[in-house]
């Protein structure tokens, strides 16, 4: 066990030595503190720890809508943009050189000629890379936990679901990056190709989501509009064509890592007002003045669209992708000459 702990400790030391680790850690904490600075009082919403505020009757301290809004800002903006994109990107940039550096002639001689097997070294290096994202996300979520306690008045431990989910998203992409890095030994090639994969996956995911909504709407139009008798046949044909496209895109998407869908799983696991499941549409409801506990039709539609993939499908197929990539990378790492 000691040799593997030594590799993990070395990974941590390496990360600690990198300026980007500290820069992204500081920015992460700044974003978290900025979130913390948002609050509520008896008159409405306060910003920058009460430096400025605006009055509203809808969202005040202690109201259920305050918690929904506060969580909404976190899930819709901070988690969606910062955790799901920027933190993962910084992680990829920081950890990109880990494998190519370990495979350099003089370094490989230091690492691969010792007691641990090559596969053991590979796994330890991979797990060590996860430290980077894990440390950032855990710290971030801790500040958010404190913010929720302070601003909303309850300890919402369900936000810790973001830690494994962000790590999963990072793992999907990083496994591909490691494969390219092991194959080419080039940090830049690995990073660029990973970003391309990420982009393709996101675009295909968006198309799949749009086609899903379109096919659902189209079907309902055909079904509830008997007056459009002249166009009924054409509508049905269009609908079938769209269905076919949706099936194709969904099949392609099945092979790709589902970064967006994985992050959306957090919504289903969050506990809001004592109930499991958070609807991103409910934040729009609040902004539009609907502060009741009942969800609007729009919020329900958002929930329906977000839940079109089961948790096991989103995580299972993506994890399978990561497993295949990692297996190939490990195979290459173990059999090649150094």
């Amino acid at each position: 066990m000691k040799p593997y702990l030594t590799i993990l400790l070395d990974s941590f030391r390496m990360l600690r030595s990198k300026a980007i680790f500290w820069v992204s850690l500081i920015i992460t904490l700044l974003v978290a503190v900025l979130y913390l600075s948002l609050g509520f009082d008896e008159k409405g919403v306060t910003l920058f720890f009460g430096l400025t505020s605006f009055e509203t009757e809808l969202i005040r301290k202690g109201t259920p809508s305050a918690e929904r809004l506060y969580l909404g800002i976190f899930t819709n903006y901070i988690a969606e943009i910062w955790l799901a994109w920027i933190a993962v990107l910084l992680g990829l940039i920081s950890c990109g050189s880990l494998f190519p550096n370990a495979m350099k002639e003089g370094s490989a001689g230091m690492l691969l000629t010792k007691k641990p097997s090559r596969f053991g070294v590979f796994l330890a290096k991979f797990v060590g890379s996860l430290f980077f994202v894990a440390i950032q996300v855990i710290l971030f979520v801790l500040v958010v936990l404190i913010a929720l306690r302070w601003r909303v008045g309850e300890w919402n431990f369900s936000i810790f679901w973001y830690v494994p989910l962000v790590l999963l998203v990072f793992t999907y992409l990083y496994s591909f990056m490691v494969l390219i890095a092991v194959k080419t030994r080039s940090v830049m090639t690995a990073l660029i190709l990973t970003l391309v994969l990420w982009g393709i996956s996101s675009i295909v995911g968006s198309i799949e989501g749009s086609l899903y909504q379109f096919t659902q709407t189209d079907t309902s139009v055909v079904e509830i509009s008997p007056s459009k008798e002249n166009n009924e046949f054409e509508d049905l044909e269009d609908s079938q064509a769209t269905d076919r496209w949706y099936t194709r895109v969904k099949a392609i998407y099945g092979f790709l890592p589902k970064t967006g869908r994985t992050m959306e799983i957090a919504d289903r696991l969050l506990v809001v007002n004592g109930k499991r499941g958070y609807n991103r549409g409910s934040m729009l409801d609040i902004m539009m003045g609907n502060v009741s506990q009942e969800e609007s039709a729009m919020a329900e539609a958002t929930t329906l669209a977000a839940n079109r993939h089961s948790v096991s499908y989103a995580i299972g197929t993506s994890s399978l992708f990561a497993l295949v990539m990692l297996s190939l990378a490990a195979w290459l790492f173990c059999r090649r000459d150094y």
Partner: peptide, 26 residues
Amino acid sequence: LLPEHAQFPDYLTGRQVIEFTAGLQN
């Protein structure tokens, strides 16, 4: 082993390099 063109992690001290190898060799 002292490999040709040995590259030690530059964030380690001389002592840590020796301890790192010791750790790898259990």
